[in-house]
Design a protein around this nucleic acid. Structure first.
Lengths: 164, 164
DNA sequence: CACCGATTGTAAGCCGCCATACTGTATCTA
DNA sequence: TAGATACAGTATGGCGGCTTACAATCGGTG
């Protein structure tokens, strides 16, 4: 087998993944526009319902976002009447995030919108394909984590000089 | 085969792709920090070298970005001395983008940085795996395009009402 | 109790990307 | 030749996400 996947094509492949990600977000945003939600907001709502009164930090963890990002996401959702912040009795530092009754009523509809897009996006994929995609993506994440650890060590110990 | 990939899991899969994309960019950015380039800038440079004096619009096409995004990318690269804008003799509307001699000298090194990351990211992937990833991603793009066309038609003709 | 370190959330400012609206130039056509 | 139309690039402002720095609070330890 000849080298069809030279470094160059691997680079292109990372760009392709980026492109998929961007277009995916765009499609979600379009489909959810009628619900007045962006994909990021929709996703936050998803976990607000799942977690039952999560703190913002808890949300940040499951969403894999920074606390600051989640904070502004909640701001948006609060302004539009989708969630409310309620105080925690036991810890005055934290806000607990809850859906408004309005959002609860509309949730079935909102949830449906997500399923619709996801089904559309993977049209023609078999179960096996989906599992493959998942495991490929997870493997990339693992490789990235390993790389991050390595560069962290290198800078800690002053090893570095890989490209010099 | 039971339904392991319900709509819910398909949604999660789109999130996973987004996460991969974000972490990919982060890793590129870290590796290229020593070269004073972000991934987006690096990528623009790649095509500046490949295309030989492209216009900004041509760059926008190959990069699959909007013209405005490319404009500001070129601004950054120009400020840091990586590219220059030269006038087109035949059409006074356009700028042709060329690498500076400084960038040309460093290009081999810069190019290497990209290969390094891409190799790291796909460590443990066989040729077949890489081809699979590529074709899965392309299929998603196709599905997205089809969805976009459909919703465009629907809104043109006032059909819509898919989710109602 | 007093203090110190860890933790929650906010503020400010950056990057990457987008869409929209605008300027200036080119080109086609009457 | 004038006027409409198309096209290149810029300006502006928005979203999504990040980092860094900070205030308030909690919790442990002396």
């Amino acid at each position: 087998m000849d080298i069809r996947f030279a470094a160059n094509e691997r680079v292109e492949l990372t760009f392709l993944i980026g492109r998929v990600s961007r277009e995916l977000r765009r499609r979600f945003d379009i489909d959810m526009a009628s619900l007045k939600l962006t994909r990021a907001q929709w996703r936050a709502m998803l976990y607000v319902f799942r977690l039952k009164q999560p703190t913002q930090t808890e949300l940040a963890e499951v969403l894999e976002l920074g606390r600051a990002s989640v904070g502004s996401l909640i701001d948006q959702l609060e302004r539009r009447g989708n969630v409310a912040r309620i105080v925690d009795e036991k810890d005055r530092r934290v806000w607990r995030v809850v859906p408004t009754s309005l959002a609860s009523v509309k949730w079935a509809e909102i949830d449906e919108a997500g399923s619709h897009v996801a089904t559309e996006v993977f049209a023609g994929f078999t179960e096996e394909d989906l599992l493959n995609v998942k495991s490929y993506m997870e493997k990339v994440i693992l490789n990235l984590n390993r790389a991050n650890e390595m560069s962290a060590h290198a800078s800690n110990k002053g090893i570095a000089n890989d490209t010099d």
